[in-house]
Structures are given as structure tokens and as C-alpha cells.
Amino acid sequence: TTVKLGDIKVTFDNPEKAKKYAQKLAKIYQLTVHVHGDTIHVK
């Protein structure tokens, strides 16, 4: 599962960890989390 934020891409083996990371980023940057299959976009 890949978390994308602009040019930053972080890949996790564990989808749950990816989701938590995405939510953490979203909170920090006051953005929202969008899940598209294996990719989680923070924008």
C-alpha cells in the first residue's frame, strides 16, 4: 500500500499502518485521505 502526498511516496507492507500514517499526515497538514485501491492519497 502506497501513501502519496505531493511528490512524497511511502510504501507499506501493512495496509493498516499505511492508513494510520496517512491519517497522521492528513492531521498535520490539515488535508483529507482518499483511498484508491492500493494507493492512499493525502490531499
Rank of each mutant, 00 (worst) to 15 (best):
Leu31Ile: 05
Val33Met: 08
Phe12Gln: 00
Lys17Pro: 03
Ala22Glu: 02
Asp13Trp: 09
Lys19Ile: 14
Asp7Ser: 15
Glu16Gly: 07
Val10Lys: 08
Thr1Tyr: 13
Gln30Ser: 10
Thr39Tyr: 08
Lys20Gly: 05
Thr39His: 09
Ala18Val: 02
Ile40Leu: 08
Lys9Ser: 13
Asp38Glu: 07
Ile8Asn: 05
Asp38Ala: 11
Gln30Pro: 04
Thr2Asn: 05
Ala18His: 01
Leu25Ser: 00
Leu25Glu: 00
Gln30Arg: 07
Lys20Ser: 08
Val42His: 01
Ala26Tyr: 03
His34Ala: 11
Thr2Ser: 06
His34Met: 12
Phe12Arg: 00
Val35Ile: 13
Lys24Ile: 13
Asp13Glu: 10
Lys20Arg: 12
His41Leu: 12
Gly6Val: 06
Val10Pro: 01
Leu31Met: 11
Ile40Gln: 01
Thr11Glu: 07
Ala18Gly: 02
Asp13Cys: 13
Thr32Gln: 10
Asp7Gln: 14
Gln23Phe: 09
Lys43Ser: 12
Lys27Ser: 09
Gly37Lys: 05
Ala18Arg: 01
Thr1Ser: 05
His36Pro: 00
Ile40Tyr: 07
Ile28Gln: 10
Val42Gln: 01
Lys43Tyr: 14
His34Phe: 13
Val10Asp: 01
Ala22Thr: 01
Pro15Gly: 06
Lys4Thr: 09
Lys43Arg: 13
Lys17His: 11
Asp38His: 10
Val35Met: 09
Lys17Asn: 10
Tyr29Glu: 03
Thr11Ile: 13
Leu31Lys: 03
Asp7His: 15
Ile40Arg: 00
Asp38Met: 10
Gln23Ile: 10
Val3Cys: 12
Lys19His: 12
Leu25Ala: 00
Pro15Phe: 15
Val33Lys: 00
Gly6Pro: 02
Phe12Pro: 00
Pro15Leu: 12
Leu31Ala: 07
Asp38Arg: 10
Val33Trp: 07
Asp38Phe: 07
Val33Gly: 00
Thr39Cys: 12
Ile8Leu: 12
Lys9Thr: 13
Asp13Pro: 07
Ala18Phe: 03
Thr1Ile: 13
Lys19Tyr: 15
Leu25Cys: 12
Glu16Met: 08
Val10Ser: 02
Val42Ala: 02
Thr2Ile: 13
